[in-house]
Design a protein around this nucleic acid. Structure first.
Length: 143
DNA sequence: GTTCTGACA
DNA sequence: TGTCAGGA
């Protein structure tokens, strides 16, 4: 019986990937994943039964990030260091994005390309800071 | 069929 | 890190 989930985030947290899923999906060998674990770089979910590794999305994402840095030429230990850095920075970004009163006010300028203008809030100078993403890229504006 | 540990022509 | 062995 599968547990019922209160929300989507909870569902994501409870998804379990086998070593084969992660290996095939990310493009790293099972041998590498076991080695990374041995080095303490990744950790399977604690409640895995009979010695069979299962990974959650956080760990799968970490593996993917390490793999990226590895492909860029970093050594495994450096790839791990950088991965942990981005992981921690992502947490701050997540807080900035969601751990607030609600969603940002967004004006969609191009639904097809997901372009728009985001009201990031008041600056304290009587103006609002807007984050704008369009064909030119990203920019900020005070209005 | 998948995963695990140990080992190394 | 790859790969094979010998089990679970």
């Amino acid at each position: 019986m599968v547990k019922k989930h209160k929300n989507f985030l909870k569902l994501l947290d409870n998804i379990q990937l086998s070593i084969g899923d992660v290996s095939d999906g990310i493009g790293v060998s099972q041998r590498q994943l076991r080695y990374w674990e041995e080095k303490g770089y990744i950790k399977p979910i604690s409640d895995n039964e009979k010695g069979v590794r299962k990974y959650n999305f956080l760990m799968a994402g970490r593996c993917a990030q390490i793999k990226e840095y590895l492909d860029e030429g970093y050594t495994l230990s450096k790839a791990y260091e950088k991965t942990i850095e981005v992981e921690e920075k992502r947490k701050v970004i997540r807080n900035f994005l969601f751990k607030q009163h609600g969603n940002f006010e967004v004006e969609i300028t191009d639904s097809k390309q997901s372009f728009g203008e985001i009201d990031l809030g008041a600056t304290g100078e009587g103006k609002e800071l807007y984050g704008i993403v369009n064909a030119d890229g990203v920019k900020y504006e005070l209005r």
